[in-house]
């Protein structure tokens, strides 16, 4: 009995002390930034409408910056990459060998054509198979002296690694047709860094070809030359190039394998921020932070029997999972054309 009395007196003392010194317990108020407040029956402060509005404003600002910084300060934002011609060739040929096709030879003329195409895209600031002034992919191939019977082109940008590039092409039906076409014998690559649409980026140009020179000139008397066939994967594929000029073929020998060009640099120029890494960090950081807070909200509210007049944390959590899983499954590490 006397012990109970002493305990009650003790509690009263503590409460009196809190009343006299409210600051002594205010410092513990920060926990309600993370868990619901049972007294006020509200969500954690970091889940309040005000906090959610601030996150929204932050993400909106980042989106605006990503849109306008490249216009007013080209090359500041960009995409880091580590792409190598040797790996691109290896992964491409691996895909072909998997379906029983012969590997393609790296041809230095086709690589030169690919390089010229990449430079042209940077110079004229476009991302397409056909340049704004109507230059076709085949024009680059013909200009370097590669006399083709079949030719094709795949493009990629903003990728981080060589395997991602080939995987993305393989996942697209039209690009896969080029990768696995039995018509091609040679291949050329260009991996070039530059500023495109204001973003520091790495362009990958893959040029396919089958030279008419070694195969058909020997039997030119008995067999007519086949018409040129050209393939680009996009819907904007140009019509078959008319066979109106044939560069002189000066050798019956197959084209020698060209040495791979230098790999791209991970960063180049004055790039300050890798937009892909920044966007990933913001997305996954914010989604994880909010998910943890919402899980805390569900757990603590049930434990303490807090009934709040607000949106359902479980519903918010489900919607976040939908966004998170959707982004994860649909994540495309770059763009192909």
């Amino acid at each position: 009995m006397s012990k109970d009395l002493s305990s009650k007196n003790n509690d009263k003392d503590i409460i009196l002390d809190w009343r006299r010194n409210p600051k002594s317990i205010q410092k513990y108020g920060f926990v309600y930034s993370f868990i619901p407040n049972p007294k006020e029956k509200i969500k954690a402060r970091f889940l309040s409408n005000k906090a959610l509005s601030l996150y929204t404003l932050f993400v909106f600002t980042v989106l605006i910056l990503f849109r306008f910084v490249p216009i007013y300060a080209p090359g500041i934002l960009g995409y880091a990459s580590d792409i190598h011609v040797r790996e691109l060739l290896e992964y491409t040929n691996k895909r072909r060998e998997d379906v029983g096709l012969a590997p393609l030879r790296l041809d230095e003329n086709l690589s030169s054509a690919a390089h010229l195409k990449a430079l042209d895209m940077f110079e004229k600031d476009y991302w397409a198979h056909v340049s704004p002034d109507g230059v076709q992919p085949w024009d680059f191939i013909i200009n370097v002296g590669y006399d083709y019977s079949y030719a094709g082109e795949n493009l990629a940008k903003n990728f981080q690694a060589s395997k991602e590039v080939v995987d993305a092409w393989y996942a697209s039906e039209s690009h896969k047709e080029n990768l696995l076409s039995p018509h091609y014998e040679d291949i050329g690559f260009a991996v070039v860094n530059g500023v495109l649409n204001g973003y520091e980026t790495t362009l990958v140009v893959q040029t396919f070809g089958k030279s008419r020179t070694p195969t058909y000139l020997g039997s030119v008397d008995s067999e007519p030359l086949p018409e040129r066939r050209t393939e680009v994967p996009a819907e904007e594929a140009p019509a078959t190039t008319p066979h109106d000029e044939t560069p002189a073929a000066d050798s019956l020998e197959p084209a020698p394998a060209a040495a791979p060009t230098e790999p791209s640099q991970a960063f180049s120029g004055g790039m300050i921020l890798d937009v892909r890494s920044a966007a990933t960090l913001i997305n996954f950081g914010l989604v994880t932070f909010l998910s943890i807070l919402l899980m805390f909200d569900v757990w603590y509210s049930r434990r303490k029997g807090i009934r709040k007049v607000s949106g359902h944390a479980v519903a918010h959590l489900l919607f976040l999972i939908f966004i998170f899983v959707g982004m994860w499954l649909a994540f495309s590490p770059g763009k192909i054309l």
């Binding site: 959610l52 996150y55 966007a279």
Partner: peptide, 19 residues
Amino acid sequence: EYVVFGTLAFLLMVLFVTV
């Protein structure tokens, strides 16, 4: 709350898809 939360999730998705 639903409007702000939905807008936030949508903007996060746009940020991820457009980079």
